[in-house]
Simulated assay, not measured.
Amino acid sequence: MFRLLILILLLLLAGLQYRLWLGDPNLRQVWQLEQAILEQRRENQLLAERNQRLEAEVADLKEGVKAIEERARSEMGLIQEGETFYRLIEQDASQRSQP
């Protein structure tokens, strides 16, 4: 009787272990899903930070002329009337060593 009970418990344990490791969903799939969730959270965090920067830039562009002016200067190379534009060109290393 005692051996039959142990045999039944061992079979039950084997069945549960099979289901845990090889069934659907199994433990490996759960680990993969947890890793995918972590990666997605990291990506979401990066995208949220980017969205915050873009929102701040949009608000700055809506509010002030300085932001628009700065963007025109840096991205388009525009200058204001009456300003003098100086362009500095660095020499190559080979030209610097020659007198």
Rank of each mutant, 00 (worst) to 15 (best):
A14Q: 07
Q32W: 02
Q29V: 06
P25R: 01
M76F: 13
V58E: 07
Q80P: 05
R42N: 08
L7Y: 11
G82K: 00
T84E: 03
A93I: 05
E49S: 07
E75I: 02
E69A: 10
R41Y: 01
Q35D: 05
V58M: 10
L16Y: 11
P25K: 00
A36P: 01
L9I: 12
V65I: 10
R87F: 04
L61D: 05
I68E: 12
L12P: 03
R53W: 09
E81M: 05
R87S: 12
L11I: 08
I37T: 08
G64H: 00
K66Y: 12
Q32K: 10
R28F: 13
V58T: 04
S97D: 04
I8Y: 07
M76E: 13
G23N: 00
E49P: 02
E90N: 13
L4N: 11
Q17T: 14
R87C: 09
R28D: 15
F85R: 10
L88H: 05
L38I: 09
Q40C: 04
E81P: 13
E49A: 13
E75F: 06
R96C: 08
G77V: 00
A14D: 04
R53Y: 06
L46T: 02
F2G: 15
L38N: 14
V58A: 07
L20Y: 12
R73H: 03
W21V: 00
L20H: 10
Q98A: 11
E43K: 04
L38C: 03
R71C: 00
Q80A: 15
Q35Y: 06
W21A: 00
Q80D: 15
Q98G: 09
D60K: 05
I6D: 06
L9A: 14
A59R: 15
P99A: 08
L11S: 05
D92K: 14
Q17Y: 14
R73P: 04
W31G: 03
L4D: 14
A48M: 03
P25F: 01
Q32G: 09
K66E: 14
N26W: 01
E57R: 14
S74Y: 12
E70Y: 09
V58D: 03
Q91L: 15
L10W: 09
V65W: 12
L33C: 01
L38D: 13
L16S: 14
F2M: 09
L38H: 12
